[in-house]
Design a protein around this nucleic acid. Structure first.
Lengths: 200, 200
DNA sequence: CCTACCGATCGGTAGG
DNA sequence: CCTACCGATCGGTAGG
């Protein structure tokens, strides 16, 4: 059971950690932002690092939940990958504060949480790499190294948190479309590139 | 005139800011790492934020110095871009601590330094975008939007600081080769893709 | 949920 | 470059 107050504190901490960074945000900054006295926070939470941990868990849950149904679909590997990358970008753009903390502030977790976080993130990336490897095996992609192709895709997608403006002209899907079009074009088998070019 | 001691302090701060973050590094951590007492730092430097500023200036200088001679070369836009991206990746991989601070910690600059930093970084990115636009204009690239193609390239390259291991099997140039090959393949005009495919 | 407090530590300075 | 110190602030707790 998560009380409303607890969620408000978590959401506010997420925003402050994203804007100012974990260490640059004091518990009194946070308390003031939810109209409490400093000490009163501790009747709702156990400590600062627990806040960070819960924010990171929540973000990891979002990424995971976004791609699981796609992995289970009955579709070609490249199609699944396309949808998974779309979903990944949508999570980043849709939860910018959480994504910023996710990519920026996890370093400040103490062990063993830090290791747990990294294992989970690694597991997620392996799922995407599996799709890339399958797309190569099925002939949808040319013979690229799945490791580097996956890293290219994730690098481009993850950098979003540094520049994406939800109030800008492009939706998250628009951005994802552009990136995926350019990256996937570079991964097509040569024959398919010709076929695509002739078809349009 | 930069004294040896000053440089040692700057280098050490760069490493600590990279490893722990700006706010999580105390001036006494830094002093201990250069075998001084806390207060003694201030006979060499003026304050903590000035350290951050000088580290960021140094990093910006490296990026700038790496591409200026390439921009001035007599070569095609796509060739210049290829070399510029290589140089960019080499700077990141060769100065990982500085790059981490450059991409991570600049947010903690106070104004007006923060704005100065962002203007300078923007100016650098415009230079690369110019090369992409020229490559489209010359027909070396297909009709992509220079803004998004440049962002794709920089996103992939900049993410390096998150994962690159200098002790790993791949040199910075190896990594750059792989990324550039995949990205550039997606930017070729269709006719050229066929030609490339036939030539090999 | 507040008041009042804890010891520790922060960046920085004075004086030598 | 050190010692000794400054006021401010840190995360967290006790008692109500």
């Amino acid at each position: 059971m998560e009380s409303e107050r607890k969620l408000q504190i978590l959401d506010t901490a997420e925003r402050l950690f994203s804007e100012r960074g974990y260490h640059a945000t004091s518990m009194r900054d946070l308390a003031a932002a939810v109209a409490l006295q400093g000490g009163s926070l501790y009747s709702h939470i156990n400590g600062k690092e627990e806040l960070l941990w819960r924010i990171l868990e929540r973000a990891a849950d979002e990424f995971h939940a976004a791609i699981v149904p796609i992995l289970a679909r009955d579709a070609s590997p490249a199609d699944k990958l396309r949808h998974a990358v779309h979903a990944h970008v949508r999570v980043i753009a849709g939860t910018l504060d959480a994504a910023t903390v996710y990519f920026h502030e996890w370093r400040f977790l103490a062990e063993p949480r830090r290791s747990t976080f990294l294992e989970r993130r690694n597991h997620y990336e392996q799922a995407l790499r599996g799709l890339v490897a399958d797309a190569v095996a099925s002939g949808e992609f040319r013979e690229v190294e799945p490791k580097w192709a996956t890293l290219l895709i994730l690098s481009a997608a993850n950098w979003l948190y540094q520049w994406y403006d939800p109030d800008g002209p492009l939706s998250a899907d628009d951005v994802a479309d552009r990136f995926i079009e350019m990256i996937f074009a570079g991964l097509q088998p040569q024959a398919e590139q010709v076929a695509l070019s002739m078809a349009t």
